[in-house]
Amino acid sequence: MGHYMLKRLLLVLPTLVVPVVLIFTLLRLAPGDPAVVMLGNQATADQVAKLRESLGLDQPIYAQFGDWLGRLLHLDLGHSIFFPEPVLSTISDHGTVTLQLTLLSFALAVVLGVGGGMLAALYRNRAVDRIVMVLAIVGVSLPEFWFGLNLILIFAVRLQWFPVSGYVPLSEGLLPSMRSLVLPAVCLGMIQAAFIARLTRSTVLDVLSEPFVTTARSKGLPERIVVFKHIARGVLVSILSTMGVILGLLLSGAIAVEVVFALPGLGRLLVDSVGRRDYPVIQGVVLITSLTFVAVNLLVDFLYAFVDPRVRYE
């Protein structure tokens, strides 16, 4: 058990290095220059060169990287080129929104997805199954931006149940804040729910044909216990590992959703920063999201050891 965890922990560092190095070099190899963006078209070559120098962009890439890494050791992600604010605090401001959005849609996705998938499998080939699966197919194929716009049109513009867009911070109360996130969370979560439902259904069908399910039934246990204890535990083990991936998909889906719903989240920040070539912010966002993703998957691995004794005693 200890070894299992240690092994997973040791894998974290190399997993983080790849996206960070990639984004650092790609940004600098891509056309466009923050100095040019900042100074506008009228700027002289001299002015640009001066600004580049003050931003440290005239250094070779490896020197810039070393500099950035050095500051990273002090938990300093640098300053935004455009705003007089440390990257870390920008990220933590925007991060709260994304975190709220992601968790809400994750909960929605898991509850609807696992529930729907189990129902579909247990009532295989009946009406419930057909309905859930048709919805799931539709859900998997919906693009977030289109689905989001339609949600806004129906629930915000026509029915006026929710705000059209924008975010109400937590400081103005939990309920109003949540209300502003309902539509985005539904938009993001439903699509993942569709994916989870399909996965759960096929996993449950696999587990249903396992001999241990017959054993449980032969012991005279009521179907409710067979389903919620024996089958569910078997299914959980199989779908847990995909939960980390789902969270990753939610993080990337958040980019589109935040733009559609004008939420000041990390996705929105990233899109804006790319447009401005705000290198420090982009790097910071990529680092933090990769870190989150890796941490979540690490957590899933640990949970795995917890629910599956076969892993524990490996």
């Binding site: 001999p211 017959t214 054993t215 078997g234 076969r310």
Partner: peptide, 16 residues
């Protein structure tokens, strides 16, 4: 009625 099945590894629950 008690049942005993062929392959005890798959007939016993893996994570209970």
């Amino acid at each position: 009625i008690g049942m005993v099945f062929q392959d005890p590894l798959s007939a016993l629950h893996p994570v209970l």
